[in-house]
Design a protein around this nucleic acid. Structure first.
Length: 499
DNA sequence: TGAAATGTTGGGGCG
DNA sequence: ACGCCCCAACATTTC
């Protein structure tokens, strides 16, 4: 550890980059002097940022716990605050005598505007303030078409992104698994950090939240934090290297009963591992003749969602294709504002409502009691673990929007609350994709048949049996919807708005 | 990163 | 040997 004596203190602002390794912004702060770090739970009312969902709050709590420990070793304190960073960051900088403040960029309004204001206010106060990349493979504005416009279609975007990643400064500039040289701080007080973290009331067990404790399955499934992220990556790469089963990643990832996918999404969501680090670690396997392009494509879909969000900040609320504004959803727009998506507070369904009522259908969908086995399995996996296999996400999304005719925003809200990996880009983008109203979306008429999908991708019903043990028995409900009939109705509704 | 309807082809049974 | 039918297996088109 380099001695930071004689250097001016630096302040580092952690947000969605809860890692020490490959953190360019943190390395820059460490380079300037002894580092004090801060995490701010931003007040949604004051800042306009969307409150985190329940599953994400759990993850954040666990990740910050780890980060406190990881930083304490180097004497770097992690201050935990809540409020408005436009007030708090300049205040903390002044109190600590920091002459330098840095952070990793965010890419969504209002966060971008907040960050810009903080930077401006610091600089006008004589404090050096800098932001750095770190959350994406490439900055959203560096990937553009020949005309200089943003991409709307994935395939050409992915080609352009790949060349940016491979030709740009790329992952090579960051040595894998290396902490910033000389990261040190004035001395940590982890106990007080943990106390401040508890104050944030992120867990359902906090007395201020009158929620049942739904975290058991999440605790069992995940290890939030940087070490957990690298462990997950290591296991995934080892499987890739050894050849995953008989099918390999490219096909095996479509089978929800197989443990083939990386499950890195929540770690990436909270920035516990850098996407460039994941990219280059996978690329290293190419030397052994492994085809990693399919996996890299998944990483690039993530960047594509952020690329689209950067150019469409309202991605989570407004149809990208405006003709869908006229689509006759079974949806009362007031319901969203009224907060039906309260989610992980114990209100899981409304089974008392009349059949055919979309409240009942939405409740059955959320609770995994639609009577459609693959859908119920997926929704139960989601509730229990905070995660759902990617192919099943497409199937449940198709059922909600097309067969049940429920607006995709209801699905987006539920996923936002229950997924550990939900972020403003991927969640919104993929719901618009599945609903058919996004750029480069699945055409509306591409309606999944959950029975066909189950036959094809869960032929032994391994996944279904695991999550819906009563399937086939007398306790399993009848389907809430006739697939054939509802498909025809969806197609007719789509015809209606095409004209 | 569909499904279903429709069209085409070719093998086999049979009169 | 031949036409006819059936039908599975693909291929193409349509939604």
């Amino acid at each position: 550890m380099t001695q930071a004596n004689g250097k001016a203190p630096a302040l580092f602002w952690f947000r969605d980059d809860l890692r020490v390794r490959h953190n360019e912004a943190l390395a820059a702060a460490a380079d300037r002097g002894p580092v004090t770090a801060v995490y701010i739970a931003e007040d949604p009312v004051a800042t306009g940022v969307r409150p985190l969902g329940g599953a994400a709050r759990w993850w954040l709590h666990r990740s910050l716990e780890r980060l406190i420990e990881d930083l304490a070793g180097g004497g770097v304190p992690l201050l935990i605050r809540s409020g408005d960073p436009r007030r708090l960051i300049p205040e903390l900088a002044a109190r600590n005598g920091a002459s330098y403040v840095s952070w990793s960029r965010r890419y969504h309004r209002p966060q971008r505007d907040i960050d810009a204001e903080v930077k401006e206010s610091l600089r006008s106060g004589g404090v050096d303030a800098h932001s750095f990349p770190g959350h994406l493979l490439a900055e959203p504005w560096t990937v553009a078409t020949g005309q200089g416009t943003p991409y709307k279609v994935y395939t050409p975007f992915s080609r352009a992104l790949r060349s940016v990643v491979e030709e740009g400064p790329g992952p090579g500039r960051l040595r894998l698994e290396q902490a910033p040289k000389g990261l040190a701080g004035p001395g940590a007080d982890p106990e007080s950090s943990r106390a401040d973290l508890a104050e944030l009331a992120l867990l359902p067990s906090h007395p201020s939240r009158r929620e049942p404790d739904w975290t058991g399955g999440l605790e069992q499934m995940w290890t939030p934090g940087e070490e957990g992220a690298w462990h997950r990556l290591g296991g995934f790469l080892a499987a890739l290297e050894g050849g995953v089963g008989k099918q390999g990643y490219a096909e095996g990832r479509d089978y929800p009963a197989l443990d083939v996918t990386s499950r890195l999404s929540p770690h990436l969501r909270f920035g516990e591992i850098s996407p460039l680090a994941v990219w280059s670690a996978a690329a290293a396997l190419e030397a052994d003749g492994r085809d990693v392009t399919v996996f890299q494509n998944e990483l690039m879909w993530r960047d594509f969602a952020w690329h689209r969000l950067h150019h469409r900040p309202d991605l989570a609320t407004a149809n990208v294709r405006a003709d869908f504004d006229a689509f006759p959803w079974a949806w009362d727009p007031g319901e969203l504002a009224a907060g039906t998506a309260g989610g992980r507070d114990g209100r899981r369904s409304n089974r008392a409502a009349a059949p055919g009522d979309f409240h009942a259908d939405l409740g059955a969908w959320r609770s995994g009691v639609t009577g459609i086995p693959l859908v119920d399995a997926g929704m139960r996996e989601l509730w229990a673990t905070g995660h759902m296999h990617n192919r099943v996400r497409m199937v449940v999304g198709s059922l909600l929007t097309k067969n049940l005719g429920i607006h995709w925003r209801h699905g987006e809200e539920w996923f936002w609350d229950t997924l550990v990996d939900a972020d403003p880009a991927s969640n919104a983008f993929n719901w618009q994709w599945v609903a058919g109203c996004g750029d480069d979306a699945a055409p509306y008429f591409r309606i999944f048949n959950p029975e066909t999908q189950a036959k094809r991708f869960d032929p032994e019903r391994t996944y279904i049996s695991a999550w819906v043990p009563e399937f086939g028995g007398p306790d399993y409900p009848a389907p809430v919807v006739d697939l054939r009939e509802s498909r025809a109705m969806a197609l007719a509704a789509y015809e209606g708005i095409r004209r």
